[in-house]
Design a protein around this nucleic acid. Sequence first.
DNA 1: ACCTAATCTTGACAGTTGTCAAGATAAAGC
DNA 2: GCTTTATCTTGACAACTGTCAAGATTAGGT
Lengths: 211, 211
Amino acid sequence: MARQMSAKERVADVVEALREEKFNARRIELAEAALATLGELGYARTSLREIAQNSEFTHGVFHYYFADKLDLICCCVRHYKAKCVTRYDEVTATARSREELLEGFANKLAETLRDDASMHRLWYDLRAQALFEDAFRGDVLEIDQSLENMVWRIASRYAELGGRTPAVSSGVLYALFDGLFQRYLLKHLADDPRAIPEMVNEVKRLLPSIC
Amino acid sequence: MARQMSAKERVADVVEALREEKFNARRIELAEAALATLGELGYARTSLREIAQNSEFTHGVFHYYFADKLDLICCCVRHYKAKCVTRYDEVTATARSREELLEGFANKLAETLRDDASMHRLWYDLRAQALFEDAFRGDVLEIDQSLENMVWRIASRYAELGGRTPAVSSGVLYALFDGLFQRYLLKHLADDPRAIPEMVNEVKRLLPSIC
DNA sequence: ACCTAATCTTGACAGTTGTCAAGATAAAGC
DNA sequence: GCTTTATCTTGACAACTGTCAAGATTAGGT
């Protein structure tokens, strides 16, 4: 039977919730600091001490807030997800024509390839780790699904603006864009200046032919 | 001025060539042993001692034949390439009809996803490493190009058998198949039994619509 | 102001890493 | 056979790793 909570109990609950919120906020801060180093060095070369040295924290703090290294990195992955899954939503929502949507999408794509290259390479690195490490698999599959949904929102809206329907399934479409992005990311990181414009051209040619 | 070689010099050259050949053969043996462990553990978790322990060699031998760890792994990558780039060539060469080629291609694809899963995940792992480590980039880009050519040989032959021409560029086609394969590899390694049949279905539906 | 609990720092631990070098063994040349 | 070179083993090295615990510091509640 649920019974009435006393005032004292309610206060305790609120206090507890605040504490947890503060605790989580700190975890995010730490995860964010870890992401910086992970994006620079990659999973294989990143140690907790290296993360700590590149941040304002000492290495002990990370063990106070995370059970172990995997826990920290999983938290990083989840946090990364939240930030990037809505990247194109504004463009999708505001574009009034097919041309405008395509232009906006291609631009954002180019922008993130240029500015967030090290976060993207970290994502591909961690997704590869999920091929070996069970602990990552759940989160990675979930993020992959979110990204697939994101691409699908763009594509189906683009089709809709032309009174059409995408010619391929959501999964195939994501595989295509994911494969392309990975490819141009590598080119870009290999200092090929053609990477970004070529990607933009490819996307502008491809999307109208599919949707 | 090129001058006539003495008999002694020619013998010395042959001896030298044999020595080098033997040396290279040993390197390949070692690389092959290393690939087994790398495919099992992934780049981040694989140490030279671990490689040695899972093989018939002692860890010192690896340093006799390779300058350092990167040198060894680069050799592994190159060797891996040589083995897998011709995987579909027989099917492409012998198939007498579109249906036969498609069937053969899809079967080989399913077979390699099932049997060589750990080599494939290693490839994706190392390609991700190339996003961070310059030393890998050259080899990885070269292998990527070889794989793209391989896919293109299949697709253009498939189109040819129907008197057609592929509807997309070689790069886009490779990105698509690469993205799809990566996706189903992850599903397969996550013990999803639908991974292989779904991939086969997807490919059988996709290829005729493109080529 | 005091006490308790939360937060953080520091240093230590055992194990692992890549690398190297000295010496053992085997092969090859004469 | 002996010598010289190539190949391999073994053990050591310093540096680095994740983890933990004891104690310092801080914040919060009363």
